[in-house]
Each structure stands twice: as C-alpha cells, then as structure tokens.
Amino acid sequence: MSDILQVEKVSKRFGGHAALTQVSLTIPENCIYGLLGPNGAGKTTLIRIINQITHPDEGKVYFQGQPLAPEHISHIGYLPEERGLYKSMKVGEQALYLAQLKGLSKKEAKIRLDYWFKRLDIGDWWNKKIQELSKGMAQKIQFIVTVLHKPKLLIFDEPFSGFDPINANKIKDEILALKEQGTSIIFSTHRMESVEELCDHIALIHKSEKILDGKLSEVKNAYKNNKYRIELHLSDRSDAVIHELRALFEISDEIVIDDTRNHTFTLRLPNGDTTDFLRYLHQNGIHLKTFQEIIPSTNEIFIKTINQKMHA
C-alpha cells in the first residue's frame, strides 16, 4: 500500500513562537489517520500547510510521491475547524460556487449536489438562505461541499462539533463509507472516543512536536502494562483465598459483593505470564468468571504521553 501524503521534517515559526518543529508523518492511502493533540499544539498549522494555505519554513510535503503543488488542491477536501458560510447567500447557489472553486463544472456540481442533498435529506433547502438554517444544518452543507469534488484526501478538523448525536452518527457513517470507497482521511480532534471508533493510525502532536505515531493497535499494545481485570466466584473459604491471592500477586481495585460471593479486582503480572495465576486458580478449584487484559484507551495514552513529556 502506497502513501497518500508524506510530511518531511516540517517546521514553521510565527514570530518568536514555534508552531511546528521538525514534524514528519507518513499517511498511508485508504486509512483514517487521527491527528491528535491539545489545543495550540500545531495541528491546525500542519493542516494549513497541507492545504497550502501557509507554507513551511523548512521541510517538504509530498502528495502521492510528488512535491505538493497548487494542482493538488483539487484532490484535497478540507473541513476547517473555524468554518462558516456566507450568511445572506442561498444554500444551492453557495454550494455551487464553492464546488466550482474546487474545479467542478457547474453542470457536474449540480448533479452531485442533487445526489448529496437527497442522501442527507435536505433536498428542500436549495433556496433557503444560510441565516435561516440552524448550526447543525449549516454543518451538513459544509460537509457536502467538502466531499463533493471526490477528493483523494479528506481533512476533517473537529468534524462532529455542532452536530447532535443522531446527525453526528450519520456523518460518521458517511466518513466510513468514504473510506470504503478508497478515500484517505486525516481526522483532527481532541475527542478521543471518536478516535477509537474511526482511526486506523494516529499521531500525537504536543507543543509543536510529534511525540507519538503509528497504527492505533500497535500504539495501544505498546502502552498496555500487563494489567488484567479478574472476576472470581468464591466459595465459603473466601477470606483465606483472598489473603493468599494478596500475598502471591499484585492486586488492586478490589470490589467484593457479599451476597453473590463475587470478587472483582485488577491484577498486574509483571512479566505478562499468566500461567502461574491460572494454575493457582485451578489448584484451588476457584471458579473464574472474567479474565480480560486491560488495554489503555487513547485518552489514557494521550494524557500519559503528554504528562511524561512535560515531566521529562
């Protein structure tokens, strides 16, 4: 699988403030790439560089192996975080205008708009003015305008802000459908739960530097720390068993529910070897109800990495 975008050692300064320092990224084709980081980390600057709105002081960006050039603009769709539409312009007119600026012919734009307006159930909005629409409604139109010219690379900056949960889901499905069709997607956010659901790859940017990147599953594996969630069903000898368990293993977060005789706790196995623990249970005839490895959430990884960075 080839790469849609390569960012090579890109730096950008605004006056005395560094927005990006030697950032390198590789974004494979046909994946959803999560660009994460706290506010002011440099995400938006990086996205603007990819969109050729600003230019890097140093470093290069390659689009499908070629140095980024103005003709690539028509292959990129960008939904900025700070987004809006002309308030006093009609929906259809405005969508046509923006589509034509992306290089579509008027006729082609009209056909595709009809398709999308039907698909998102907004066919009757064509002659409405933006100021008559709610924020969520305007967001739908912006989404359509972003994807209308069938770009190879889509960049969404906080795409779900302003949507109610139902419409957010709709848009999420559309994003997944676009990925199915072969589009590569950069997804910038600080809402981690949507990252878990959508992203294949992630990169974490903090204070202008990239501090972490890779496949989401690999990143998670790297951050797991051999913790397991255990649920046991105990018989009458429970107190003795619990004492023994505490003596033999690293146990924390215990919860005992008396009437059902259930015992839940977190177990840490320093070397990741589960055989000792399982053998102990087997020998003592303890009934094991749940045995699950605890994999850190993106949110935890995010916070942990940034805290480490700040204390380092």
């Binding site: 969109n51 709105i53 103005p70 603009i73 990129i76 960008y78 939904l79 900025p80 700070e82 987004r83 809006g84 539409l85 002309y86 308030k87 923006l98 600026l101 992306k102 912006q142 305008v145």
Partner: peptide, 12 residues
Amino acid sequence: SRIIEVIISSVK
C-alpha cells in the same frame, strides 16, 4: 462568518 478558510483552501 468563518467562511474564509473554506475558500482559501481552494483559491489563493
């Protein structure tokens, strides 16, 4: 109206 960034991602 915040449309500016949408537009300058297509034109200079």
